[in-house]
């Protein structure tokens, strides 16, 4: 059984925000919600590195563990999805997530949270695959069509990779060997330990 993972190769990431925009494009994500964002460390000085961050689809997802209404579920290949109909917008998952993946669309002037929204690995939600309801609530379901997340498919330098963890690691290992340098599997220890 494959185990879906994201990996952002910090040696190739140029902070072009292609992944961010591809996600916005595919799922019509509203202003203010960034399912994916690029984080730059040491901006402007030698050693500058950028990494693209979204939901890591953790093995033992803290968001699922703390949800008071249990709206999260994990597919057999490790994609963590949630049900917006059950979500109460309490924000606990945001506190628990080490990557800041859960986002809340802005509401009225009183700043009240709405339904939690996060990266779905382009796998939609519990509604029927490819239905109009699923598209409106969660965005496109590319996995059901046999496609992979658009952010990784559209990465300008093929820095962001998404797919079965073994194959992803294989690609990355090949690159590291070619470069002869230290691996940079950022975030994997936190998300995939155990």
């Amino acid at each position: 059984m494959a185990r879906m993972k994201f990996l952002c190769d910090a040696e190739r990431c140029i902070e072009c925000n292609g992944c961010v925009t591809a996600c916005k494009n595919e799922h019509e994500v509203p202003w203010g919600v960034n399912r994916r964002r690029v984080v730059t460390l040491d901006d402007g000085v030698p050693g500058e590195k950028s990494i693209s961050v979204a939901c890591m689809h953790c093995t033992d997802a803290p968001c699922a563990a703390v949800c008071p209404v249990d709206c999260f579920y994990t597919t057999p290949d490790g994609i963590v999805l949630h049900n917006k109909d059950l979500c109460i917008g309490c924000g606990y998952c945001f506190y628990a997530c080490p990557f800041g993946a859960p986002q809340y669309p802005q509401q009225s002037a009183f700043g009240v949270r709405g339904k939690m929204d996060k990266c779905t690995f382009c796998a939609g939600g519990p509604d029927a695959d490819g239905s109009a309801e699923e598209i409106k609530k969660y965005g496109r379901n590319r996995i059901a069509e046999g496609k992979l997340p658009l952010c990784a498919e559209m990465c300008a330098t093929k820095a962001l990779i998404a797919g079965d963890g073994d194959v992803v690691a294989d690609i990355y290992r090949k690159r590291v060997l070619k470069r002869g340098g230290r691996p940079q599997t950022w975030g994997w220890e936190t998300a995939y330990k155990g």
Partner: peptide, 21 residues
């Protein structure tokens, strides 16, 4: 999980789907 079942869950168990991905 307290919500309705996601049809994708069964689909992902299908080896043909995994091959396609």
């Amino acid at each position: 999980y307290k919500g309705p079942k996601d049809p994708l869950v069964d689909k992902q168990r299908d080896p043909k789907q995994q091959e396609a991905l």
